[in-house]
Write a protein that binds this DNA or RNA. Structure first.
Length: 674
DNA sequence: GTATGTTCAAGATG
DNA sequence: CCATCTTGAACATA
């Protein structure tokens, strides 16, 4: 529908021509003047296959690989040295590390150099070709090409770094997960020392000093690997993935050469959501210009038409697309803020307005480009459902848990006429074959009131390896073989931060009909990386019990080795110079526990497999001490936007198992079988 | 709950 | 190349 417009020359043509210089677009065999980045199609397909990279560029530094088969092979048989050995790349030692000497050594060590991301590689390509500017007279000049640093911290491979054959989505995810790992780790350390809590800034400083980032350089339009609906909790996250560069300012803009001189255009805004306008209309947005507000030393004054304000004004006339990140109050978090990437908008009009403080301020009305998938609209919708569950339509069962969970678990089918999942009994917890009292007891701590991080006398802290596993916000810092929460033997209160999973589900789940994978699980709430999601409830199968019915296989949980994305979630330590806790697939030790959710279970039994999952399982103990049969808890691998299907990696099945099935996860790095 | 003050870093600018 | 300026978020405290 909107497509025809993309091919028409219009007032924005020069800008459209300018754009591909800074994106992946030149690699497409596209006719001149076609705006490739303009997403009239949903950005689900925005990922660029690696094969798009010309084999010759970058001084031959990129391998001429790129088939998905190649990637799956490396993903399956991951070995750190082997993988990186395939990635020769020009390495520059990291020399700056803002948090002092702790981590960085020049490249003198045994580890292999590692590629930051293909996005950076493409940036280099873009910068090299920028001089040629063969695309026409309107090439955008890159104003300040920055050196591309390679990161090499303490001689260790950095946890989540994408390889050169990562898709843009994987590159962004990898950078983002690295940031989150660093942030959680620094928060944990800060809380131990009761020091400053700006772990977001610390993580950001390390990321930028090491140049671990995606989509370096400014661009108009979509950012490769960033999808509409993606959620964030800190401004620094937007910065390191290349969505919105300024760490504070709400307006990101760039200068460009349009053939007839330099001009500035706005490229991204963060609408902080302070001004709640009409509820239902998420497609228009009124944004206020910046400046003029009173500062400590200055008086209030009228806003001036300069910098960001000027760029917005120029963008009104150029009619270029502007990315919009919308901030909302998130009632679920204490600080209560969440940022949602809402896709591309255009400015319709601007005007001056006198504020209540009596100063003139600029206002801009933005209209969302049609044909994009919902972003902020989903947030508004799910928040409404959370406030009043009866506003959720298409419900075929209002509470699958029959009141067992704090919040009802509804069942919806928007696909076909299935009436609901087959019968089972809902239970909130796993059920052991033997009474808990007969199992080995878990040791407890003697802490009064609550356990505190850094308390050497807290037995639970010591049991967990010295640190409490959760931050004060209840977010898991790092994967571990087992996590020991405080339990009955502990003297601390139920408010202790070391009691998370035992408090049960805190989200509004819905079981929904998928198009091709039966029933699936998703959530109305946003879930931040590291947050506890749910337990795998069911019956623990006694090892003595044999001859299981095959039909039960679909609902059996076993601790099989998950893929790389999950395994690397525990790689925070080496980022701050501590010993890596990475467990390679070779070293992976499965637990004997098997849980069947065929007869009894909870929402977890509806979680489908994905080779690129957003959740992972983690053994947790709190009501007994038998480490071979822990409870299995699911946590978020990365931030999960509302209404995103929750998936985990079912793991690699050993050869000769009758259980292998064709995988339908649809991930670009799908292993094919499960 | 909310009002206010302090501190912070990236990138533009001169 | 470097110093200065511009921004408002995040959080602590009142």
């Amino acid at each position: 529908m909107d497509r025809a417009r993309n091919f028409m020359p219009g007032p924005n043509q020069e800008l459209l021509d300018a754009k591909p210089l800074r994106s992946l677009a030149p690699m497409f065999p596209a006719p001149m003047g076609v705006n490739i980045n303009q997403s009239s199609t949903p950005p689900l397909v925005v990922v660029t296959p690696v094969g798009q990279f010309p084999t010759g560029f970058g001084a031959g530094s990129l391998p001429a690989v790129g088939s998905l088969a190649t990637f799956s092979a490396t993903a399956n048989a991951f070995s750190p040295a082997g993988t990186s050995a395939n990635v020769p790349i020009d390495v520059t030692p990291v020399s700056a590390y803002k948090t002092r000497s702790s981590g960085v050594t020049p490249r003198n060590d045994d580890g292999e150099p590692y590629s930051v991301s293909q996005t950076s590689a493409s940036e280099r390509q873009a910068k090299r070709s920028a001089g040629l500017a063969a695309e026409g007279s309107n090439g955008v000049k890159v104003k300040r090409p920055k050196p591309i640093y390679r990161n090499h911290v303490s001689g260790k491979l950095l946890a989540f770094l994408p390889t050169s054959d990562s898709t843009p989505r994987e590159a962004v995810e990898a950078v983002h997960m690295t940031f989150e790992a660093l942030r959680r780790r620094h928060l944990q350390m800060d809380e131990t020392l009761d020091a400053s809590r700006r772990a977001d800034l610390k993580a950001g400083a390390i990321m930028l000093a090491s140049d671990i980032r995606a989509n370096v350089g400014k661009r108009v339009g979509t950012v490769p690997g960033v999808e509409i609906g993606d959620i964030f909790y800190f401004r620094m996250e937007l910065c390191i993935i290349g969505l919105h560069a300024p760490s504070m300012s709400g307006i990101d803009y760039m200068s460009a050469n349009f053939g007839n001189g330099e001009d500035s255009v706005a490229i991204c805004i963060v609408a902080a959501g302070g001004y709640e306008n009409d509820d239902d209309d998420t497609d228009t947005l009124v944004y206020s210009g910046s400046g003029g507000n009173s500062r400590n030393t200055e008086e209030r004054h009228d806003q001036k038409l300069e910098r960001g304000n000027l760029a917005l004004e120029r963008s009104l006339h150029r009619k270029n697309e502007i990315r919009v990140v919308r901030g909302f109050r998130d009632p679920a978090t204490i600080t209560g803020k969440i940022y949602i990437y809402d896709g591309l908008y255009k400015i319709q009009e601007s005007w001056k307005e006198r504020t209540k403080f009596g100063i003139n301020c600029f206002k801009y009305r933005l209209q969302r480009e049609p044909g994009q998938r919902d972003g902020a609209a989903i947030w508004k919708r799910t928040q409404r459902w959370i406030q009043n569950a009866s506003t959720r339509g298409r419900v075929i069962q209002h509470d699958l848990s029959s009141g067992a969970e704090t919040f009802p678990v509804c069942v919806v089918n928007e696909i076909d006429h299935e009436k609901g999942p087959g019968h089972f009994t809902y239970t909130t917890e796993v059920k052991y074959p033997r009474p808990l009292s007969s199992m080995k007891a878990l040791q407890g701590c003697g802490c009064q009131s609550v356990c505190l991080p850094g308390d050497a006398n807290c037995a639970c802290g010591q049991h967990n390896g010295g640190d409490l596993p959760y931050s004060s916000a209840g977010v898991l810092v790092c994967r571990k073989p087992v996590i020991y929460e405080c339990g009955e033997a502990c003297h601390c209160s139920l408010n202790c931060r070391n009691r998370v999973c035992q408090k049960g589900i805190r989200y509004h789940f819905e079981v929904f009909r998928t198009t091709n994978r039966g029933w699936g699980l998703r959530c109305w709430d946003p879930i931040r990386a590291g947050a506890f999601i749910c337990e795998y409830a069911g019956e623990v199968i006694d090892e003595l019990q044999v001859n299981l019915d095959d039909s039960e296989d679909d609902y059996i949980f076993q601790t099989m080795c998950p893929g790389e994305k999950t395994l690397k979630w525990n790689s925070g330590p080496e980022l701050i110079g501590k010993e890596s806790t990475y467990v390679s697939p070779d070293e992976f030790q499965p637990l004997p526990i098997k849980i069947s959710a065929k007869q009894i279970g909870n929402v977890s039994r509806f979680m489908n497999h994905s080779c690129s999952p957003n959740a992972f399982w983690q053994p947790v103990q709190y009501d007994h001490g038998d480490d071979k049969h822990p409870r299995i808890m699911f946590f978020a691998l990365n931030h999960i936007p509302p209404m995103t299907e929750l998936t985990y990696d079912y793991g690699v099945v050993g050869a000769g198992t009758s259980r292998s099935k064709t995988c339908l996860c649809g991930s670009l790095t799908c292993r094919g079988l499960l």
